[in-house]
Nucleic acid binder design. Structure first.
Lengths: 408, 408
DNA sequence: GGATATTGTTCGCACTTCAAACAATACCGG
DNA sequence: CCGGTATTGTTTGAAGTGCGAACAATATCC
């Protein structure tokens, strides 16, 4: 039951109905390919006549193509329809504190090439270097197909509309109009997004598997920080200033450890990789600045190493993981009470130890969840090997083609 | 950029375009009445010809009517259009711990009659009594017009789809199919909702004033508990199990005072009326059950009395209010970081002292808000005299008439 | 080889927006 | 009082849509 916004509405024209139905058909083909016109008509509850015309238009727009003819027990054999994705290229970029990831993929998100290099912190150099790498990548691996845009993901706050990075503390970038610079250097359209929200986009728009399909979910990435993306009604929650979803900085305890954001006791300060390592090494985070520790004491020991030690019966390591797991669960419980999503996706280094921490996490959730049903909210672990940030960056370019037309 | 749900979509038929445009016209008339067809056509960017037909259909559906002719500097005088609301009745019910509120209003939410009586806790008696009161109310004050339904609001968790009260601890009600019972006793359609979310509905759907119009906002009601309603894209967030928006039970400090929900350190436990009174009287909430205190020690002294004392220079009373104000602000900051709404509406007993606590609340918000822009999120105080719960109950019945048709 | 089943196309019809002409007022300046 | 002009609201034909039914094109089965 949505209220019509009388200050920003979209009247239906005589082509609106077809726009809507063409997009529905396109999405059904995407989800069920290969599929015949007749099957499509049955799924849409429309006559084959109309569907034939819709398909004809989608072919004319080069969004789909006719493939082989399928098998049928009786009667004329169907001609299968497919989404045209293999010859539409997308460049995805994930800028992180240590390294930058660069991927070339097609419109379905299928990876064609991937490379990684040390992050360049100077903006002009970063843009120049990246543009050169993209040109080379497209020339060598692009097979002559056209690239439809660049999706760029950064750890920090961005204004997705204007393409500006507002504040990325990990990179030391502030108020950078990266879209204009990169678009100028490459001649390609550029879209940017925060890394937590981009991962949520990847989950929303990635090619259908058995775990996709939820249209109301929360995506939680536990790493150096805690990134969260919230999807409501199949739409990413961005908010007035594009900071929506910052659950990482909700308080767990007002007098808890110091957080990078300046406040105390943030969820992130309890559950980030640094917090987990601190528990193991006995660092005191409430006194020192977390940034300090990061460089000085941490060395090259990561949470993945910690997980390995826990698996080889290092009880101190396991205790550190479980402690973080409990705080993870407490925060997740709050998210459930607030958003009440269909499911929650989890990723990050510590989630690789899900078999070790799951019980603790679930007990913590039960501790604060308001109803029994809320306690049973499905938790789905996604692998970090699938590059969720990069797939989200790609979705920034590919998704608008499939999105629902704005109406009413 | 919304993803089409391929498991639950709505194909456009040949009447869809008109359905959409008719609803847009209806909402524009509602917002700008009295308005002429020509004005409507200009606002919709359509020709007068189409608008004439749309208006004709709306009149045939008895949703609008033609009123007086207006004035014009030159040319033919316009005939004004109005929403037909005065002869469509709605019954709104607000069940609270101490008393039940019963209101008769028209489709615009205009109050025709209101009564209040001690809450009956036995379900069968409650239904029987309420049905009798509604019959009497409609007979005496109904002017012979038809009543289109009953909106019922309770403090607790409800399943809005099935019309069941899942758990209303304040009333001691659990798993009650109140809709079937009340509909059976009155012969009228019944819709139910949680009180916090209902207030948000009232804010969303109430007749336009200078403070309405936001389509992304959070409504916070601070009273015996803390009720919150979240509106995203003009739609109330309900969630999978209809518990979305329960910010009242996010933690402020894990080892904080005991909350009614069983957990410790909930925002509600820091900011409810009971918490504020406890600060003034020096009650220790961490040890006793809050329910206990409520009946035993509180007496008839309310937060409104406390506000009165603070205004007459009782420094201990003021300190108690400011202490609550600070925690209010800390919670609001988290809500801003998470939802990043266009604005936040505030109501409740303590908000009547807004002039006293505003500075403290805003300082606390600035303490934890992640960006400067977030700190400036508009806070709007709404009066408790306007019965937001009852207007929300009425909106449950009236709003579906004006809601956007589901498409794609 | 005819009956049957299924796919995909075509055509008339009903419904829609859209642009333009039209009728119905009203005011103004002589 | 009368024509000129401006504005509102209606009507009309053209073009874009979905809907239902008939149709042609396959294919299998007995």
């Amino acid at each position: 039951m949505r209220k019509i916004n009388t200050r920003d509405f979209h009247v239906a024209t005589r082509t609106t109905s077809r726009d809507i139905n063409r997009h529905i058909a396109l999405n059904l083909i995407r989800e069920h390919q290969p599929i015949s016109r007749a099957d499509l008509a049955r799924r849409m509850n429309m006559t084959r006549g109309v569907v034939s015309v819709l398909v004809q238009e989608l072919i004319a727009q080069a969004l789909i193509y006719e493939g082989a003819t399928g098998e049928a027990a009786r009667g004329r054999k169907p001609t299968f329809l497919h989404i045209r994705t293999h010859d539409r290229l997308v460049v995805a970029v994930d800028v992180r504190f240590t390294r930058t990831y660069l991927m070339l993929c097609d419109f379905s998100g299928r990876q064609l090439a991937i490379e990684t290099y040390d992050t360049v912190f100077s903006i002009p150099e970063f843009v120049k270097d990246l543009a050169a790498r993209i040109r080379k990548l497209l020339k060598r691996q692009g097979l002559g197909f056209t690239c439809e845009g660049i999706g760029l993901v950064v750890p920090g706050m961005v204004d997705q509309r204007t393409g500006k990075i507002l504040n990325a503390p990990a990179l030391g970038w502030r108020d950078v109009d990266i879209r204009t610079k990169l678009a100028g250097a490459t001649g390609l359209p550029v879209h940017i997004e925060n890394s937590g929200r981009a991962s949520a986009l990847a989950q929303l728009w990635s090619e259908p598997t058995e775990t996709t399909g939820a249209h109301n979910f929360v995506y939680i990435s536990v790493s150096d920080g805690v990134g969260v993306g919230v999807v409501v009604n199949g739409e990413l929650l961005r908010g007035r200033d594009h900071i929506a979803g910052e659950f990482g900085h909700m308080p767990i305890s007002m007098d808890g450890p110091r957080c990078m954001c300046g406040a105390n006791g943030c969820w992130e300060a309890y559950t980030s990789n640094l917090a987990t390592l601190s528990r193991y090494f006995g660092w005191n985070l409430s006194k020192h600045s977390p940034k300090h520790l990061k460089v000085a004491e941490r060395g090259s020991f990561t949470v993945l190493d910690l997980v390995a030690r826990a698996r080889s019966k290092d009880s101190k390591a396991l205790a550190a993981l479980l402690s973080t797991g409990r705080f993870l669960g407490l925060g997740i419980a709050t998210i459930i009470n607030v958003v009440n999503p269909d499911c929650i996706y989890l990723t990050g280094e510590i989630i690789t130890a899900w078999d070790l921490i799951e019980d603790t996490v679930r007990r913590a959730i039960a501790e604060r969840a308001l109803t029994e049903a809320a306690t049973r909210t499905p938790l789905r672990v996604t692998s970090t090997q699938e590059y969720p940030r990069l797939r989200g960056a790609a979705a920034l370019i590919a998704a608008p083609t499939f999105a629902a037309p704005r109406v009413a």
